[in-house]
Simulated scan of single mutants.
Amino acid sequence: MDASLKTALQELDVVEKHIGIVDDPVRYKAVDEVYSLPRSRKGGLPNDEARQALRSHYARLSNMDKARLGDVEKQLIDARKSNIFQAEKLYRERQANALTAETLAKSERGEDVHHARNADDLFDQLDI
């Protein structure tokens, strides 16, 4: 249990660091670029270390041998699992907000804006 607890605390530190990054759209752009491959994304968003850590922590709680726990301990584990689930949901929302904010900022600056006569012209501009 000692090693598992140390790992859990390290993972939660990673989540805390990533919250500071995801709340800054300019900084989070780098994370989005690093996690660009389809297998590195879930639901269109980067499956970054924070999401991995939250999922790992949820799995760790789910794998606890509840047969040996009392009713109060089981309720605590269930509450923690619910909190971790909500934390991951909120983190995904922050990811989406960061990426949307960067896209809007680019648009306002005129970056990555394409003007086309029709779909074929747009596809040509995008090399599709």
Rank of each mutant, 00 (worst) to 15 (best):
D2L: 09
S4F: 09
A8L: 14
L12T: 11
D13N: 10
D13C: 06
D13V: 13
V14C: 11
V15S: 02
V15K: 05
E16L: 13
H18E: 14
H18V: 00
I19L: 15
I19H: 02
I19P: 00
I19E: 08
I21Y: 05
D23L: 06
D23V: 00
D24T: 12
V31S: 02
V31K: 10
E33P: 00
V34R: 04
Y35D: 04
Y35E: 04
S36H: 13
S36T: 03
P38Y: 09
P38L: 06
R39P: 01
R41W: 07
K42P: 00
G43M: 03
G43D: 15
G43Y: 03
P46K: 03
D48Y: 08
A50P: 06
Q52G: 02
Q52T: 12
L54M: 12
S56V: 01
S56H: 10
S56N: 12
Y58L: 14
Y58R: 14
Y58F: 13
A59S: 11
A59R: 07
A59K: 09
R60G: 03
R60E: 02
L61D: 01
N63H: 10
M64T: 15
D65R: 15
D65I: 08
D65Q: 10
D65P: 01
K66F: 02
A67I: 03
A67E: 15
A67K: 08
A67L: 08
L69V: 02
D71P: 09
V72W: 09
V72G: 10
K74H: 10
Q75D: 05
L76T: 04
D78N: 11
R80C: 06
R80T: 04
R80K: 10
K81N: 05
S82V: 03
S82Q: 13
N83S: 11
I84R: 00
F85R: 07
A87M: 08
A87L: 07
A87E: 11
K89P: 00
L90T: 02
R92F: 02
E93R: 10
E93S: 10
A96R: 12
N97W: 04
E102Q: 11
L104T: 03
K106A: 13
E108H: 07
E111V: 00
H115N: 07
A116M: 08
R117W: 09
R117K: 15
R117I: 15
D121T: 02
D121R: 07
D121H: 13
D121I: 01
L122T: 03
D124F: 12
D124M: 12
Q125R: 10
L126M: 07
L126D: 07
L126G: 13
D127G: 09
D127V: 06
